[in-house]
């Protein structure tokens, strides 16, 4: 028997992922894009549900909308990811497709910051470590835990 647990996988020190930027990393064998949007972190699988493009390499932009024909307006600047191939747009904060949110989505993972270990916080000279790590939580099957 096994049970699923969420395991944090480190991405980088907080300082290496500034506002509006992204990092594409391989965690547990999968390519994952981690985004810093307004100080919150979001992680998406780097694979488009359409034809499998590396979607996290797409351009980040806003959501263009229009209250009436010919009057385009921009909302949510920096929160919409456009697939580099056929241009499907995804909401980075949910992974959902802009056109078909109920039906189409990029797989998303919880992401955030883990506090630095006690020692690093005391030893102030190591700025990087004292900032904490951006992490992505991925489900893992934990056999050992159940046994014990």
């Amino acid at each position: 028997m096994s049970a699923a647990t969420l395991t944090p996988y480190p991405v980088c020190p907080v300082g290496e992922l500034p506002l509006g930027k992204r990092k594409i990393v391989t965690l547990k064998g999968r390519s994952i894009g981690v985004f810093n949007i307004g100080g919150r972190y979001f992680a998406l699988q780097n694979r488009c549900p359409h034809r499998g493009a590396p979607v996290c390499e797409g351009r980040l932009g806003g959501f263009f909308t229009a209250s009436e024909p010919y009057a385009p307006a921009l909302e949510r600047e920096g929160e919409i990811l456009r697939c580099p191939w056929h241009g499907w747009e995804f909401d980075v904060t949910t992974g959902r497709s802009v056109c078909q949110p109920e039906k189409v989505r990029v797989k998303s993972y919880p992401a955030g910051v883990e506090p630095p270990p006690e020692t690093a916080r005391v030893e102030k000279y190591d700025v990087t470590e004292s900032e904490g790590q951006v992490v992505v939580w991925i489900v893992t099957e934990n056999v050992e835990k159940l046994k014990s």
């Binding site: 493009a53 590396p54 390499e57 797409g58 351009r59 456009r82 580099p84 191939w85 056929h86 241009g87």
Partner: peptide, 11 residues
Amino acid sequence: SGGFKGARADC
């Protein structure tokens, strides 16, 4: 056109 300058943006 689509993409970036009509080509794959990841190129």
